[in-house]
């Protein structure tokens, strides 16, 4: 096919490689990975406090949204849920991550007004999972609850 518009394609010099050198065969630096995993382990003592702060942040965002459900409050609630989705698995709360994922999907995937009742159901579920320290991704009671929330979100988005 004939060229229709000017396209400039070029390879800048690899200054990064020149700076850091190394790279025998492009393999990963396993010693550095080991050091970092050890450092991550040492952070785990702080994870409980971090998770508590994230739950509080989500509850505060829910409170703001309940009081004034405007675009800013909705965006803040989405950010809180999205952060939690991204971090809870790291903090060993995979079911909080899944619940927060369902909440952020409900807010993100539509421009419709979101039902406060369904927001509250997600926030309450997260609160209970955190309060009861449910870290097992196969916890049956929690799974039933989360599957119900996901089904409700799917029905809301489809309506």
């Amino acid at each position: 096919m004939a060229r229709q518009k000017p396209i400039e394609l070029f390879m800048p010099p690899n200054m990064l490689k020149a700076k850091v050198g190394g790279g025998t065969g492009g393999g990963l630096d396993m010693a550095a990975i080991k050091r970092a995993e050890t450092a991550m382990e040492s952070l785990k003592g702080e994870f409980a406090g971090w998770a508590a702060q994230d739950v509080q942040k989500l509850e505060a965002a829910r409170g703001r949204f309940a009081k004034t459900p405007d675009a800013d409050a909705r965006a803040a609630l989405l950010r809180a849920a999205h952060d939690m989705k991204g971090q809870a698995a790291t903090f060993d709360y995979p079911l909080i991550a899944r619940t927060a994922g369902s909440l952020s999907k409900m807010i993100h995937d539509t421009t419709k007004p979101i039902p406060l009742g369904l927001v509250d159901a997600h926030v309450s579920a997260i609160h209970v999972i955190y309060r009861d320290k449910v870290m097992d991704a196969s916890n049956k009671v929690a799974l039933v609850l989360i599957e119900e929330l996901e089904a409700q979100v799917a029905a809301f988005l489809a309506a």
Binding site: I7, E8, L9, F10, M11, P12, N14, L16, K17, V20, G23, G26, L28, D29, A32, I33, A36, E37, M40, K85, G86, Q87, A88, A89, T90, A97
Partner: peptide, 23 residues
């Protein structure tokens, strides 16, 4: 997310070893 140590190392290695051309 969730971030893992290996994923961070892999992305760093990728930008060092396999830079993409620019358009």
């Amino acid at each position: 997310k969730p971030v893992s140590v290996k994923a961070v190392m892999t992305r760093l290695t990728s930008v060092i070893e396999n830079p993409r051309p620019y358009v």
